[in-house]
Amino acid sequence: MIEIHARSSHRSLLVRIGSRAVVRPVLGLFPSSRTAACLLDLVDVGMQALPRHSEVQVESVDGGEWVAELLSVEGCDPRRGAIVYFHGGAFVMGGLGTHRRITERLAQRAGLPVLSVAYRQHGRGHVDTSIRDCIEAVDWLIDRGFDPSGLVLAGDSAGGHLAFAVALAATEQGIALAGVVALSPWLEFDNTQRRRHRNALRDDFIPAFRLQRVAHHVTGTPVIDPEMSPVNADLRGLPPVLIVCAADEVLRYDAELMTERLDKAGVPVDLHIWEGQVHAFPVLADFLPEGAAAVEQISTFVDRVVPLRPPVEDGLAS
């Protein structure tokens, strides 16, 4: 199913104007240097200083090379399942702080614990390193007693890429997860066709012309193997998928292409396209009414795919 949402608030217009004036020019400087990458880390540190929602309980998780926060609220049922959230940031920036608000909202609205994962990014490893960390984070949950058939993998932008990559690894091992949620996912490292998309110049957030260099930067290879892109994988056997994107963002190309290929592979998929929004707008759910509505869509999807009492199965080996 593909659904177009025409709603657009005054706040979303302000976000689009600010993104076009500030964010897009800054991202046009990518690939960043190591010094710039360190400065980008300060954004996450600053965001972690923001106050939390008072009803959210937080457990810090130290995975060695990765860290995470397990978020829950009163009434969460860990026996039913959990959401594992991988933040976006082009494998260069972002972390627990920048995505605290959406993960807290998901815990509140879905009624499930949320494991928010801070995986290694550029400067500490490449995309394959990020994927390994995310697999280990899912394994940590399973080792703790969470059943894989009750787990929903979610993420925005690069995090959407990771959600699919981990789901593909699980499927390859015969492990059935509950679902995948991808918000404005970056799923194709080859930028050739994307640069020809009608949104290449319309995107208020992402400078499409830079994406190929960023891809080489974060994969660490001058020639990118098509198999590194989840959109080119064998998608058969994946759990149900929810994809959300903005109508004018350039990664709409990835969202629509993945939707088409999932449908051909026989995987249940819903694509929601929101007009008047910016890339990964659900992350701004505390500010944007459209972002809050998208979180409600995610909650509805989770309720549909997560069984009330999932049976016990084996874990996912990293």
Rank of each mutant, 00 (worst) to 15 (best):
F281I: 15
S229D: 06
R236L: 04
Y253M: 07
R195P: 04
V223W: 00
V250G: 09
C245P: 07
P282Y: 08
A247W: 05
R252G: 07
E275V: 10
Y253T: 10
R252K: 13
P268L: 02
C245I: 03
R210K: 15
A247C: 03
P282K: 06
H217P: 03
Y253R: 05
D270R: 11
P282F: 09
R213N: 14
D270T: 11
D190N: 11
N191C: 06
R261I: 04
F281D: 01
V267T: 05
T219Y: 02
R210W: 00
A285C: 14
D254K: 01
H197C: 06
H279L: 10
I243V: 12
E249W: 00
P230W: 12
Q212K: 07
A292T: 10
E256Y: 03
G237D: 03
P226W: 15
I206L: 12
Q193N: 11
A200L: 03
R252M: 13
V218M: 09
V241C: 14
G266M: 04
W274T: 01
H197D: 10
T192C: 07
A280E: 13
G276M: 14
P289V: 14
V214M: 07
A292N: 02
T192S: 11
I224W: 02
P207N: 14
G291L: 15
L271I: 04
I243W: 08
I273D: 04
A233K: 00
F287K: 04
I224F: 02
H217Y: 01
P289L: 12
I273K: 01
R198D: 11
L235D: 13
H216C: 08
L242N: 07
R210D: 09
E275M: 12
P289D: 14
A208D: 07
G266I: 08
A246F: 04
P282V: 15
E260V: 01
P282T: 10
D270G: 11
D270L: 12
